[in-house]
Design a protein around this nucleic acid. Structure first.
Length: 208
DNA sequence: GGATCGATCGGCT
DNA sequence: GCCGATCGATCCG
């Protein structure tokens, strides 16, 4: 498998979000490789998106979202957990894909060491959980995912057909009617590692 | 199994 | 001051 190039991220965010399902997130930590298959993501697009951190305009916190594609945007939520986003689209336009869940692949015992003695399905089945499992914190904010010798990147993995994918409203968003109703959450339908068991889901994903 | 609640920090109003 | 793109423990039915 090979590292996804910057052009992968430099596309419409809904396209990138859908296309990230089935790819493999890899974290090199103390010489070990921890990895997981991406099974749940959400898109956050532009300042008009009332659920996005960019709704208030550019700030020190969300600056990475405004930067070039193929970089990480990591923030602390509720003073307790970190969340990992992958920055998309053109430099200057604030958009990113939140990685919400993985299926653990390599380094599962190291993940358990960080997450506690839990079943595989509980190790990385949430945005905060996967950051804890892979030791992703604020130091990765702005990190280049396409760098030669990086500590965090995404590999191509096995692309998924539309029959295996579902989409629905994003989790935990407040915002306006538009923000709450838009189906910008994408999941691998039959995964046992989603952040919420039952899938919501509307029709086919419809990137515009 | 669903609802509720506390933890605990930094960034923005 | 206020409040979050969450998690896990606890309580109830």
């Amino acid at each position: 498998m090979s590292n996804l190039p910057r052009e992968f991220y430099a596309r419409p965010t809904l396209t990138v979000a859908r296309d990230l399902l089935g790819r493999v997130l890899v974290r090199r930590l103390d010489g070990e490789c921890l990895s997981g298959r991406i099974v749940e993501v959400e898109a956050y697009i532009g300042e008009a998106d009332q659920a996005s951190h960019a709704r208030v305009g550019r700030t020190a916190r969300n600056a990475a979202m405004y930067g070039p594609p193929g970089h990480a945007y990591v923030y602390l939520i509720y003073g307790v957990h970190y969340c990992l986003n992958l920055v998309t689209e053109d430099d200057g336009f604030p958009a990113a894909v939140l990685v919400r869940a993985l299926e653990p692949l390599a380094g599962v015992e190291w993940m358990r060491g960080r997450r506690g003695d839990r079943p595989d399905t509980a190790l990385t089945s949430g945005p905060g959980k996967l950051c804890q499992a892979l030791a992703i914190d604020r130091r990765f904010d702005g990190a280049d995912l396409c760098a030669a010798e990086g500590l965090l990147w995404v590999e191509d993995g096995l692309p998924l057909g539309d029959a295996e994918v579902s989409s629905g409203p994003r989790i935990g968003v407040r915002g306006d009617e538009q923000a709450r109703g838009v189906p910008w959450r994408f999941v691998v339908r039959d995964s046992r590692c989603l952040s919420r068991g039952a899938v919501p889901i509307m029709a086919e994903p419809r990137p515009h």
